Amino acid sequence: MPLKDVLAATLVMVLWGVNFVVIDWGLQGVPPLLFVALRFSVVLLALPFVARPAAPLRHVLLVGAAMSLGQFGLLYTALAFGMPPGLASLVLQLQAVVTVVVAALVLAERPALLQWAGVGLGLVGLGVVALGRGGAVPLVALVLCVGAAVSWATGNVLVRRLKVPGGLGLTVWSALVVPVPLFVLSLVIDGPAVVGHALAHLSLAAWLSTAYTAVLASLVGYGIWNRLLERHPASEVAPFTLLVPPVGIAAAWLVAGERLTPAALVGGALLVAGVVLVTLGPRVLARRRAGRSRPMSAPEVRTVAERP
């Protein structure tokens, strides 16, 4: 991959990692579900300029219900309930582990042994994070964040099951299913008075956060990401997502002074190691098998023959 594309992928990871801190910053004074509705209302402004994915609209909306509405509705609520943004960026990566399990159950896919090892390691890491989260992290916030990861994983499996193309088109068109349901749900949960007051008194932080999450994290981020996937194999591009938790944790430390407990750091390291096995393990095995089955050249044959 050329250096400019490596830098572009790294830029996207920085945008996505910082995204957690920006969301937490803008949530002050705004109900979380209403805030998600505002974000995706801005995303929908790009609808006339982005081609619809080559799939039935109902399939696109079904994916959006899990990947956009469910994931971000739960994530924003988790942050509102006290989930630290750095820890949230880490726990959300559980989606890669859950995707393997859900795909095995729903799509009858057969994960490699290394992937099952990654699932086990990731779950152990999550358990360590839960036990060592410290008193500052409410259990309900952690559960909601795990729910966001499960919702994201469900969306991943739906993309495969329904054969919906990913990328920027899916991000924009799936947003159709987000604003109205979450706005209505916010009215029911928070009450018309709270929602009306929040809309009438949106702070500069809320507007800037919405602009960042909708324009930079969603449109610019997925726009660059989609181009990279068009130019390079997914196996070269996807591993960059492992940079999101370190960026998120670093941003939360620099901006908000967030410090993870030692147990949370250990659990997070185990979780990320599990994600590495799930993501990269099968590719490493495939390359080794391909290398073994590759016919040997004349010098290689001679070298093997000369071995004692």
Rank of each mutant, 00 (worst) to 15 (best):
I189F: 04
P262T: 03
G70K: 13
W25C: 11
L242P: 00
N19T: 15
V128T: 12
A8C: 02
S89E: 08
A88W: 12
T241E: 12
E306T: 04
S186L: 08
L114N: 11
V247M: 02
G120L: 14
L3D: 00
M1Y: 06
V106T: 06
E230C: 00
V159N: 03
A108T: 13
V278E: 12
L44D: 01
V12M: 08
A65C: 10
D5G: 04
A46E: 04
V22P: 10
A54I: 02
G17L: 11
S174L: 09
W207S: 13
P181Q: 05
W25A: 13
L176W: 08
P138K: 01
P31V: 00
A214K: 13
L33C: 14
A290K: 12
V100G: 05
T210K: 01
G257C: 00
A205T: 04
L242H: 15
L92P: 10
P299Y: 05
A193I: 07
R302V: 08
S174G: 15
L69T: 14
R302M: 07
A269R: 09
W253V: 08
T241N: 09
A206W: 05
L38D: 14
Q95H: 15
S174V: 01
L216G: 00
L57V: 06
V12Q: 09
P299K: 14
W25K: 06
G64T: 01
A200L: 12
G274F: 07
V12G: 03
P165A: 00
V304M: 04
D5K: 03
G166F: 01
D5H: 10
R259F: 04
R110K: 12
V18N: 03
L182R: 07
G248M: 06
L121S: 08
A217H: 09
G267Y: 10
P138L: 00
A153T: 05
V215C: 11
L265I: 11
R294W: 03
V21T: 11
G70M: 11
L182V: 15
A193F: 01
L208E: 11
F240A: 13
S235P: 06
Y212I: 01
A298Q: 14
V180F: 12
A251K: 12
G118W: 14
A206V: 03
P32G: 06
V60R: 07
A211E: 07
V36K: 14
